Computed example of a mutant assay.
Amino acid sequence: MRFHTRKWVKPEDLNPNETLFGGRLLAWIDEEAALYAIIQLENSRVVTKHMSEINFMASAKQGDIIELGLDVTRFGKSSLTLRCEARNKMTRETILTVDSITMVNLDESGKPKPHGKTEIEFVRDRLDNND
């Protein structure tokens, strides 16, 4: 799994128990999944269709650094399915896992659009080396 993003837990991210609010973490994950899918599918019109069961395993407190990791598990005709892990960089504990996040590629009218992708691409591989 590649960990692409780090988030710093700040006072505004806490719940009444003074630990990381789960909804804040899920918002970070949804944004990270969207950004990842946009880059992979080369289309800014991508939406979240489905998120499977979310398994909270640990928490985080103010000042902790959270890492978000994503892996592609499936390329559909117009979708990309990811799995996610959020971990606490300070304690090395897994905070949560999401087995399946389905992102859908859309056309200009908001309808699912085939993307033609079958494997993960890295930006460096898309660059034309003949310049």
Rank of each mutant, 00 (worst) to 15 (best):
E31R: 10
E31S: 09
E32L: 14
E32C: 13
E32M: 04
A33K: 05
Y36A: 08
Y36D: 03
A37F: 07
A37L: 11
A37Y: 08
A37G: 04
I38V: 12
I38K: 13
Q40I: 03
Q40V: 08
Q40W: 09
L41N: 08
E42K: 13
R45N: 13
V46H: 02
V46N: 01
V47K: 01
V47E: 01
T48V: 11
T48N: 10
T48S: 13
K49V: 14
K49G: 15
K49R: 15
M51Q: 07
M51R: 09
M51W: 09
S52P: 12
S52F: 14
S52N: 03
S52R: 04
E53R: 14
E53N: 15
I54W: 08
I54N: 02
N55Y: 12
F56M: 02
F56D: 00
F56C: 01
M57H: 03
M57N: 01
A58P: 02
A58S: 14
A58H: 05
S59V: 08
S59E: 01
S59H: 09
S59W: 02
A60R: 04
A60N: 07
K61W: 00
G63H: 02
G63P: 07
D64N: 15
D64K: 03
I65G: 03
I66K: 02
I66N: 00
I66F: 04
I66M: 05
L68K: 01
L68Q: 00
G69H: 02
L70I: 00
D71P: 07
D71A: 11
T73F: 10
T73C: 09
R74P: 10
F75L: 08
F75M: 06
K77G: 12
K77S: 12
S78Q: 06
S78G: 06
S79L: 14
S79K: 13
S79T: 15
L80E: 03
L80G: 05
L80N: 04
L80P: 09
T81N: 13
T81F: 13
T81V: 13
T81E: 14
L82C: 02
L82H: 03
R83K: 15
R83D: 06
R83V: 00
C84L: 14
C84N: 09
C84I: 01
C84Y: 03
C84H: 07
E85R: 06
A86Y: 11
A86F: 12
A86P: 06
A86E: 02
A86H: 06
R87I: 05
R87T: 01
R87K: 10
R87C: 02
M90I: 12
M90K: 11
